[in-house]
Amino acid sequence: MPDRVTIAPQRLGGVVETIPFADRLSLIPDLFGQLDTAIAQAGFFYVGPQTALYRVTGDQMEVRVGVALDRALPGFEMFEAPGSDALLHTHRGGFDQLPQIYQTLDAAVTEQGLQRGTWAREVYRQVARDATLNVIDIYMDVL
């Protein structure tokens, strides 16, 4: 059962794009590539965790991927990750299991008599070549 949590607002810098929802699986990795390029060009050897926010409107998906920055830097678009109440599931394992986790979160929203909020978000705490080492916090905003 997912935990209900409150997420504090956060200012992030990264990449913001609106993409066709149907093409999300092929396009989202490119957005993370753009973020990685900006991180490298800014001279960071570590910055994290990376956060992704997803909002679907019709057949379009707004994707915001970024990292916490203390100021605007070239190559980074600054944006808000708004605060909210959310259901949280911490996942350990591969990215291929994420669709099932979102289904579980959707079911929990209904079971708890809640409504979905605006954003789904993923916070990548640990990502490794060996996917069994991945740790991803997956949040679904709720009202």
Rank of each mutant, 00 (worst) to 15 (best):
T6K: 15
T6I: 02
T6M: 06
T6G: 12
G14N: 09
V15D: 01
P20N: 03
I28Y: 02
P29E: 05
D30N: 00
L31G: 03
T37Y: 03
T37F: 06
I39W: 04
Q41V: 10
G48H: 02
A52L: 07
Y54V: 00
R55K: 15
R55H: 11
V56D: 04
V56F: 06
T57N: 05
Q60G: 10
Q60F: 01
Q60C: 07
Q60R: 14
R64W: 05
V65Q: 08
V67G: 01
V67N: 12
V67E: 10
L69D: 03
D70I: 09
D70H: 11
A72S: 08
M78P: 03
P82E: 14
G83E: 10
S84M: 15
L87N: 06
H89P: 02
H89G: 01
T90L: 12
R92T: 13
G93L: 11
F95N: 08
F95S: 14
P99E: 06
Q100D: 12
Y102W: 09
T104H: 00
L105N: 01
A107L: 05
Q112H: 12
Q112I: 03
A120F: 01
E122W: 02
E122L: 05
R125W: 14
R125D: 13
A128I: 08
R129N: 15
D130E: 13
A131L: 05
L133W: 10
N134H: 10
D137S: 09
